[in-house]
Amino acid sequence: MTAAGVIRGCEALIDGVGRAVSWVSLGLVLVMAGNVLLRYGFSTGSVAMQELEWHLMSPIALLGMSYAIQHEGHVRVDVLYGRMSPGAKRVIDVISFLLVAIVAALLVKISIPYVMLAHRLNEGSPNPGGLPWRFLLKSFIPLGFALLFIQSVAAMARVIALPDTLPASATAAASARISSQGTPA
């Protein structure tokens, strides 16, 4: 496989996971609204369904991180950056992506023992009737940062090997940014 093929493969993986996980946000709307309406209309509801509300936030936030960055780019202050030469921007981009990859790898490393501990303690809800297996919920932390690592390495490789191009999935806003600034923002 060519370098470009590997880069595109990684990006497709991030995009696919992000699209799939997106539907959890619809699930969140329905679960929370359902809980409210069932309680109001029928004075009924379960502890597990109430806990599910905040359990759904974790996959949206953590598995969606790399997906968000791939599509919209990082949020940054462009006061000086916007006036830099394309070469200088590329240097900042490569260093940034490298550092994000390092930060992501660090977080994977320190969160694995945290998840293993939750597994060993058989951690569940302290509320009777609540949701069990909290280690599964916590495992989104290393998983999310592993995806971010892949996304950052792919983005760095793209800046180096395929300069001035964007992932197939990048949004119109990001394309507009590349045409006006010469590099993905």
Partner: peptide
Amino acid sequence: KVYAALGVDVRL
């Protein structure tokens, strides 16, 4: 859990 056994709708 005890209240729930008496029909209370438990909120968290």
